[in-house]
Every structure is written in C-alpha cells, then in structure tokens.
Design a protein around this nucleic acid. Structure first.
Lengths: 143, 143
DNA sequence: TTCCCTGCAAAGCTTTTGCATGCGA
DNA sequence: TCGCATGCAAAAGCTTTGCAGGGAA
C-alpha cells in the first residue's frame, strides 16, 4: 500500500504534475480497498472519512491511477464502471453473479495461450483482453 | 431474414403483444443489417428510409428483439451498446480494433471447454460469457 | 508570479420513463 | 370499446468539462 502510494507519487512527478493533498487522500483510500468499487462509492467513503474532495476530483484522480497502471477500470452495465487495484503481476478475469453481484476472480494460463494463438491467426495485435462469465454463484444457486 | 421476421412475429404473438407497423419496420431494418450497430445508427437509418419511428420505440423494440433472442446486445465503453444479429447457433467472441473500431468475430471451442471447467471448480452456474480482445487489426498495425 | 488543481455547476450522452393520444382488434 | 403502442419531452444516471478562484513552487 505504502509502496503503491510511492509508485503513484513517482508517476505524478514523472508526469510533471503535482502530488496534491487530494490526490494523496484519494490514492490512499483506493489502495486501502481490496474490493471492486465504483467512483461514487469511493467518493462516499472519502466523505465519510471527513474528506472534502469533490466528485470531479475523484474521477480525475481515478483516471490518473488507471494511467499509472495502479488501477484497472471495468465496464459494467449501464455505463457504470468499477475499479480494482491492479498489481500488474498477472491478468485475471471475472465471474459475476447476476443475483447478488458478487465478483469472483480467476485466471487461466490455458485461455491466455489460446487467445494468443487466435490473435496470431488473425494477425491481430492484442493490447488487452477481458473475459467475463455471468451466472449464479454457489450461494445464490441454493436459494 | 424473412424467417427471422416470422420468428419475431411469433414471439410477439406468443407474448400477447401486437405486431405493429413500427415493430415490423424496425425488425426488418435490423435483420437487413449484417454489422454491429448502435440504437442511434439504427434510428438514423430508419429515418433515412422515410420511417417516422421515434428513438423510444427503437429502444423498446430492440429490447424485445433481445428478449426474443434474435439480437445480442454488447456493452461498449461509455455506456454505449452495440447490437448484432444473433443466430443462436454458436457463441462467438470479439476482437476490437482500438484504432479503427473494426470488430472481428471468432469462436473457440477450446476456450468454451476451459470456461466450463473453471465454472465447475468454483461451483458457478454460467448463464452467459463474453471474451473481448482489444488491440490493433492487421491494417492498423501497418500504419 | 505562474500555472496547475480544485470545487461547483452545468453540460454531455445514451437510455429510460411518464403521459396523453391514437390506432388496431 | 378497450387497451396496448407510440411519440414527445423530460428524467435518469454516470461521467466529463468550463470556469473562476486558490494554492504550491
């Protein structure tokens, strides 16, 4: 967490930007989360902690964190987005429960390999990829 | 196309709805397309053809077509959606060129198989899934 | 002093919804 | 006649942007 904050500070400095109090506050709050969260949830959490940052600044800082590759942005339905801490080590995908909204992360090197083969076949240069499985989680199936 | 129109008519009748002129017009226009399209593009195409349908009706009818499983709805960035004709035969996924927007469809039974295994492992009941690869298509790499 | 950052409010965009009207069965 | 379907306009929901003021180097 401390480490990520330093990486963010470095990114900001390297981009000739200012590591403002607001950016610090928001980043610290983000790195403190280990779940998927929306911009508004983050904004409310900051408010609750007594912060005075505005929604605009939250959005602007989240963008910076994504650019710094410290955060991933996931498209959800209806123009909503979720963010998640990104460790940059290994790509992972998501299973999303359509009933309770739970998100389960998984990864598969096999799928990654096949994807690469497919890209090669089509001469497509992959920059990113996402796999999402929607359905019912274990608990919700029981209900 | 004629066939899909009949299937849509049947779906509408079976749902105790009316197969109105507008629904006919919109569905015919949709089945005539073989690309991915947005609701607004469809609306404009209809206008261009001299139709007087409103955006609201376009959206409402697209929803019906999705419910009838004659159309798939894809989430794109920024809360936008694209639709594509759905033949119901085989699932396919997409490679999207981030430069020109081209969409290449592909399918992989191997990936489908691995997905099923993963779901089994997590006791997750899959209802749908989507895989998307973003990057550069062949032409755009050359530029 | 310079200029980036912030907050506020307004705008943007796509999609949905309320409501009165109207057409079809 | 009855009621679903439509069109219009407004609302909704999230996100972005313009702008003026404030603060850091």
């Amino acid at each position: 967490m401390k480490n990520k904050l330093n990486r963010f500070r470095k990114f900001i400095k390297d981009s000739d930007l200012l590591f403002s109090r607001e950016r610090h506050e928001i980043a610290a709050c983000v790195f403190d989360l280990d779940t998927h969260f929306s911009a508004d949830e983050l904004y409310l959490k900051l408010k609750q902690q007594g912060s005075n940052v505005s929604r605009a600044t939250v959005y602007r800082t989240l963008d910076l964190l994504v650019k710094a590759k410290l955060l991933s942005k996931l498209q959800m339905k209806q123009g909503q987005h979720l963010y998640e801490n990104y460790d940059g080590i290994m790509h992972h995908d998501h299973m999303i429960c359509v009933n309770c909204g739970k998100i389960i992360e998984f990864s598969s090197t096999e799928i990654e390999t096949i994807q690469k083969q497919i890209c090669k076949k089509y001469n497509f240069k992959m920059k990113s990829h996402m796999l999402r499985i929607c359905g019912l989680c274990e608990e919700c199936q029981k209900k």
